[in-house]
Amino acid sequence: RAAQGRAYGNLGNTHYLLGNFQNAVVSHEQRLLIAKEFGDRSAERRAYSNLGNAFIFLGEFEMAAEYYKRTLQLARQLKDRAVEAQSCYSLGNTYTLLQDFEKAIDYHLKHLVIAKELSDRVGEGRACWSLGNAYTALGNHDQAVHFAERHLEISRELGDRN
């Protein structure tokens, strides 16, 4: 049964990489079921992430947000700050797709705090870039400029000419 769980996970990832997102969801749902049977919270957390990602490409952003929230909850329980940061970043982007910019900002700010704590300059730059765009969408140009300037500063430091 444990091997079956891993096989479902690998199958889900293969469907995903082939662009078969509906099949990926079916496999990852089976993986999730088996992870829960075993009380394997790391595998459960991975299944939530993979399901969230697949729902993004199916255009089902509300479902994606639900799975990313479960990922975030488990990342906090497992005290995995890197995964917590990644979940917040995913949620910020998902709420941008849902055009809920207030929530998008909330999650991008959470991502920014953790990226700083982990000295992740690339993550910090991405958070600032995302925040600049979200504040622009809300018409808050002062904050948009503030984050665009920080994004520029970090991009220069990283030598990211693009």
Binding site: R6, G9, N10, N13, Y16, L17, A43, R46, A47, S49, N50, N53, I56, F57, Y89, S90, N93, T96, L97, Q99, R126, W129, S130, G132, N133, T136, A137
Partner: peptide, 26 residues
């Protein structure tokens, strides 16, 4: 993204490009 200005979503587009090849492995 039809209702949004491209400038507002370039960061989302970049995230999705990365996401396309991102899987949590067993």
């Amino acid at each position: 993204f039809h209702r949004m200005n491209l400038m507002q979503v370039d960061s989302v587009q970049r995230w999705m490009d990365d996401l396309m090849v991102m899987t949590e492995c067993e």
